[in-house]
């Protein structure tokens, strides 16, 4: 149970960063930390004590390996988190070029 709580603490740090900070880069970092926490939580759910990696060998049974299904799902999630971070960073670069600031409260002028 302690390890679940640590994952949730990590998620809450990311949530605090997204909600409280006013810098776009800090918001992107908060989103990234939330993604890390969720990925780690899914893998922790599938862990078996003294289990092996889910790779086939001669004496491998389903009862002595960790759950491979969350790993297959998280593999997708990691790549999609790369895509979202890439798009957010590109938008942040363009916002800095246009407004010369990363502060989200200053980005309200409609300059054409």
């Amino acid at each position: 149970m302690v390890i679940y709580m640590l994952c949730f603490v990590l998620f809450c740090i990311g949530l605090y960063g997204v909600l409280r900070k006013r810098n776009i880069i800090k918001i992107i970092i908060g989103i990234g930390i939330m993604e890390y926490a969720v990925n780690l939580f899914l893998i922790v759910l599938g862990y078996r004590v003294r289990g092996r990696a889910p790779i086939f060998s001669s004496d491998q049974q389903v009862l002595n390996m960790v759950d491979p299904l969350p790993q297959a799902v998280v593999l997708t999630t990691i790549v999609i988190s790369l895509a979202t971070t890439l798009l957010l960073a590109a938008i942040a670069i363009r916002i800095y070029e246009k407004y010369k600031t990363f502060d989200i409260t200053k980005i309200k002028r409609l300059r054409g």
Partner: peptide, 8 residues
């Protein structure tokens, strides 16, 4: 790595 997920 510790949680036995080398692909990830």
């Amino acid at each position: 790595l510790i949680l036995k997920a080398p692909n990830l």
